[in-house]
Design a protein around this nucleic acid. Structure first.
Lengths: 126, 126
DNA sequence: ATTATTGTATTAAGGTCTTAATACAATAAT
DNA sequence: ATTATTGTATTAAGACCTTAATACAATAAT
């Protein structure tokens, strides 16, 4: 999963989301050490200040903690991580349903369209 | 459908999306006249310049056209509007599937979660 | 002990977005 | 003919984001 920064929203916001995702999906396991601010910044091709800003927010949320000079680590609280994962998923579903109903699709149509697209996706990977 | 502007993305981008939505969902029917730039700006509580910027983009895309001093109108090309609606819907589905698979959900789980949430939504409105 | 690495803080510069305040030209309305 | 309304253009100011270039303190590594 490479870093994917688009120009349409603040970079630090996207960094927060993507690090959050790496934690929820297990790329950064509970208790593991993250690369240094400078290394992460280089990985993502952003300024260290910008990466620092994103990390500070995640720390504020409790997903990360800092050991002054040995580095930054993912929380060991696996329940919290599961909770975040669930919250993100539900938010994605709700946002998606809102967008589709605004476009005038009813629930049956939505299920139908998504099923069709899933089948198309599955065909690609066989 | 009131205007809904959030501070996390450029306003003009959100205006483009919301006017597009009003066109696709029939709030602004094909061939109908839009309120003036100044009126729209006041409706949405934004600066006329910002609204102008959004309208210019939609005109560039062909969804709107201008009659110099009588106002701005929605295209009469209903096929184009349907096409845009379809394109937006497919984009929403793809983005949604991407986000959910990134979080580690497989297709069966996705269908299951969305079905559950739809049932919950339906209960609210009965 | 010395060095390197860690997170953190500061200052300055440039870019984009937004608002505000106007102004102009074309034409619909009167 | 005159007036009002339309889209459009311009300029200036301020806010936020990002980068760059440093610097500092704490401590792990040597």
């Amino acid at each position: 999963m490479p870093w994917d920064i688009k120009p349409d929203r603040p970079i630090y916001t996207q960094l927060i989301e993507q690090i959050q995702l790496k934690i929820c999906s297990g790329v950064y396991p509970p208790g593991s050490r993250l690369p240094s601010v400078r290394d992460l910044a280089q990985e993502a091709s952003v300024n260290p200040n910008t990466m620092q800003r994103a990390l500070a927010k995640l720390e504020e949320d409790g997903l990360l903690y800092t050991n002054r000079t040995s580095g930054r680590f993912v929380t060991e609280d696996t329940d919290m991580i599961k909770q975040v994962r669930k919250r993100l998923a539900e938010k994605h579903v709700q946002d998606f349903l809102k967008k589709m109903t605004e476009l005038g699709f009813d629930y049956n149509e939505i299920i139908s369209i998504i099923s069709a697209m899933i089948k198309t996706e599955e065909m690609k990977h066989e």
